[in-house]
Amino acid sequence: MSTKDWISEPADGVGIFQECVYDSVINDVNPNPAVIQVDHTAETTITQKVINDELGSRFTMEASIPAKTFDKIAAHWCKKRSLNTNKYSLEELLSKCNFLQAYHADKSIEVLEDDLDDFALTQTINKRIEQPEVDADLDMDNIFNILASDPLEAKYMNECSNELIQLREAGRNLTQTFPILTKIGSEDEHAKALMMMETLLEDYDNNLLLVDALSCSIARYEADDDVLK
């Protein structure tokens, strides 16, 4: 009866085994030497050499094994002996991180990445909470004090801004009351616009902005009318 405990069967001419006779009560794993069995094939060679150097004369034996075959038997050996070739196992990696909740090996990568993002966000929030509070006076009478170095210049900029805002609001209200200032949609509105223009021109200096707006609206309508014709 064979006492060989095959780790990797010699399917490609190379196999590895251990003698399975040992005291299993004392030893958790088989302590016997690993034996590599190399059969004579076209891909495997065994060479005997005698080396003479300053260390003296010694006998060596070299076995040439295909790299892929050696990969296979190495993988079988690590699996049989429950050896982990990675620096850390998945459980060890997870235990080294202070995650917000427990993880399992079968959790998807997407869920794990989401949890890592949450962890990073929590760390950032905690750092900001630990930072000391800084008193700041954010009340400001005139925002243009930031832009101008001279208080008088900032005051002038603020007054101009207020006037422009009032002018903009007045323009919006006026265009809502008289839509023909921005768009003329019919021949009747065109006639009304011409009549309004005559009235505005009587006091041109005070109605300059309205004259400009109405003249542009009339010009757009007449240009579109010429194209249609």
Rank of each mutant, 00 (worst) to 15 (best):
C78Q: 14
M61C: 14
A120V: 11
A120K: 11
Q18N: 02
K229P: 02
I109G: 09
P132A: 05
P33F: 07
L116C: 09
C97R: 06
I16A: 06
E91L: 04
D139F: 08
D118Q: 10
V50C: 09
Y204V: 10
E163F: 00
G13M: 01
D139W: 06
C160Y: 01
S215N: 10
K87V: 12
E198P: 02
I109M: 09
N173M: 13
D224R: 03
P66Q: 09
A102C: 01
D212W: 00
S82I: 05
L94D: 13
I109V: 13
A34D: 13
T45C: 08
N52D: 12
Q18A: 06
L147A: 15
C160A: 11
P132I: 01
S2R: 06
K127D: 13
D212M: 07
K229C: 09
V25E: 10
E222K: 04
Q37V: 03
L93D: 04
C20K: 15
K192L: 08
T47N: 10
D39T: 00
A67Y: 05
F17M: 02
A11N: 05
F178E: 14
E91R: 09
I16Q: 01
S95E: 05
D5I: 00
T122D: 09
A63K: 04
C160S: 07
E110N: 09
E92N: 01
L90P: 06
A191V: 07
W6N: 03
D224Y: 03
K4G: 00
I16D: 00
R58D: 04
L112S: 07
H190K: 00
N30T: 04
L100W: 02
M1G: 13
A154W: 02
V134D: 02
A102D: 08
N145D: 14
A193I: 00
F70V: 00
G171Q: 09
